[in-house]
Amino acid sequence: MPNSKIGGHYSQAYDAELQQAVDRLMQMAALTQQQLSDALAAFASGDVALAQQVKDFDRKVNSFEVDIDEHCLDILARRQPAASDLRLVLSVLKSVNDIERVGDLAKRIAKALLKGAEYGRPSQAQLDALSVMAQKVQQMLQRALEAFKQIDAQAALHVLREDKAIDDDYAQIIAHSLSSMKHDAQQIGVSLQVSNVAKALERVGDHSRNICQHAIFLARGRNVAHLSDAEVTEVVEKKP
């Protein structure tokens, strides 16, 4: 369904081009979300075949990135957008990079299983900790994408605040992994696998945060990338 906040020009074709940029971004995002979900399922179950599929699927995500970049550059060249239209195109170009990186991180999780099979499997406690963190990360990513799609600065602000819980989960997993390696040398390989997956999830959270910042830039016209959370809140809640 077209977003009523996008377009509004006399040229319906121009409106359609802008909407298509967002639609393609969301299609790419859906692919990377599935890629991430499959990578996590593969690691949790030890499914090497599924992990290999995740790794091979990366080409399709990269193809989407090229297609969206070309579409946005075409808009810039032909339409010479200004104001909110320009912000939309720039925000899509920035977000597509973050979404592509999520795909890369999904591939990293898959490779952690493919390259670490010789070390054995993580304990159930380790898998459970990763599962809790993964659920939070996937929810954060979904909410960030929805905030961007709806150009909803308030929703983006709420999602930004979820990053702290993910960072806390990451710190706990790393601390447990270091303790395991310290007390049992045989756990080094497995603990490094777990740490690598946790780091990938933490980075997905960071990219979700970036997408929220792009949504706020799109909605408020202010780059908030280097502002504190308090300053971002002030930007979002400031009366027009």
Results as ranks from 00 to 15, higher is better:
E17R: 14
R24S: 10
M26V: 01
M28S: 05
T32S: 08
A41L: 11
F43H: 02
Q52E: 12
V54Y: 01
R59G: 10
N62V: 05
S63E: 15
F64C: 12
L73S: 14
L76F: 09
R78D: 07
R79T: 09
Q80A: 08
P81F: 06
A82P: 04
S91P: 08
S95D: 04
S95N: 11
N97W: 00
E100P: 03
R101T: 10
V102C: 05
R108F: 13
K111C: 05
K111N: 13
A112R: 03
A112D: 01
G116V: 01
R121E: 04
Q124G: 14
L130Y: 00
L130V: 07
V132K: 04
A134I: 01
A134V: 03
Q135L: 15
Q139W: 07
L145Q: 05
A147T: 11
K149T: 08
D152E: 11
Q154I: 14
A155H: 05
H158W: 06
V159W: 00
K164A: 13
D169W: 01
Q172I: 07
S177V: 02
S180E: 10
I188W: 02
S191R: 00
L192G: 02
Q193H: 02
D206V: 13
D206L: 08
H207Q: 14
N210P: 03
C212N: 06
C212M: 08
Q213C: 09
A215P: 05
I216N: 01
A219F: 07
N223T: 14
V224P: 01
A225F: 10
L227N: 01
S228M: 12
D229I: 11
K238N: 12
